[in-house]
Design a protein around this nucleic acid. Structure first.
Lengths: 197, 197
DNA sequence: GCAATATCATACAATCTGTATGTATCTTTA
DNA sequence: TAAAGATACATACAGATTGTATGATATTGC
């Protein structure tokens, strides 16, 4: 019979309990929503107590922030991986969009990142979480796709924001049963026409 | 000195207290958000007690639903008024969009309809509230603008959804300080190119 | 090895939500 | 029109939740 773990470093202890809390919280936030999920539920699912939770996280909102942040990083990683190779800017936008749809099909991400996130953390915090760079990536993609035409920065920003909103809505509709292919094609046409001079 | 109101019908009593609760709730939901607003706060602001609130509304969520519904009706009325005259379908889309931006500048509407609404009531309930017809109106406008080209229903639905998402995002960005003219122009171009055959 | 600190559990105070109950006012009807 | 019932609203209560304060145990630095 093995000893339970005669000596674990603080770092190691913190990492495992933080991960346990994050995992349990994510599961419940996804299943019941942020508001309907209680901290007793979370720590109970994690096999801990509320003391651990409030030691590692400022409050319930900070815990949600950490969950959303990790989720957003995972989404960003999926997209980055899909668009790694040498594509034209226009194709990179389309391929990245499809990768985004695919990533957002992971159950719960819609709720975490598109529904509860903006309400709980505010639009500004969600934008900061949003890979912190999705907007910039889109702007660069659009600018490159429209080259050599030069678009003013504010106009470019507006186009990127609108395109990003379209991607988000597409993910929502797809989660509601709409066809991924239909939306990929519709957005593809939208991109083509938007960047055409 | 006037008598306070020696006799008021039940209908009249209900209407005034319902309105008082709705007004107070709207103000607090807008100022602090749904989650941070307590029912004691609401009825205190309305000069009533929680008994009245729970008599007229099933629960706090139902009260929010009523507030959001009224707000959405007001927005829809503004748009309808702006697009009443005989415009081409394409222009009606643009004018309607601008009217939407203008209507959404009314403080609080962003938070009620675009941030808290989807999280508190769910995407489905918000779509049902959404004038119940905004999506349909957009679909008709797009179809008419693209005539005589005939677009399959599901594709039309996708286009309308994406356009609606763009309008929502534009309203959000404008509330954050972006230029209304810039977004009106950018979306106008988007519409032109989207409906061009 | 011992003080200092980090990790986590337990206990507590302040709210908040929804319901149950009570009272006054209005409406129906015999 | 007077009693009976329904409606409008206030008050009281039970259960649950959040954040904090305090306590115990394990780890780390000196």
């Amino acid at each position: 019979m093995q000893q339970e773990s005669p000596r674990r470093s603080n770092r190691e202890r913190s990492d495992t309990t933080r991960a346990a809390i994050l995992d349990a919280a994510r599961g419940l936030f996804v299943a019941k929503g942020y508001a309907e999920t209680s901290t007793p539920d979370i720590v109970s699912a994690a096999g801990l107590t509320r003391g651990a939770l409030y030691h590692h996280f400022e409050d319930k909102k900070a815990l949600f922030h950490a969950v959303a942040e990790r989720e957003s990083r995972d989404v960003a990683a999926s997209i980055e991986q899909a668009t790694a190779d040498g594509l034209t800017a226009r194709d990179a936008l389309k391929v990245g969009g499809r990768a985004y749809f695919e990533a957002m099909r992971e159950p719960g991400r819609i709720r975490l990142l598109l529904l509860d996130g903006p309400a709980v953390l505010g639009k500004h915090a969600m934008m900061a979480i949003d890979a912190a760079n999705a907007q910039r990536t889109l702007e660069e993609g659009i600018a490159e796709a429209m080259a050599p035409t030069v678009v003013p920065a504010d106009k470019l920003s507006a186009m990127a924001s609108l395109l990003s909103a379209a991607f988000d809505r597409a993910a929502l509709d797809i989660a509601d049963g709409a066809s991924t292919d239909l939306y990929a094609e519709t957005i593809g046409t939208l991109i083509d026409r938007m960047v055409s001079t």
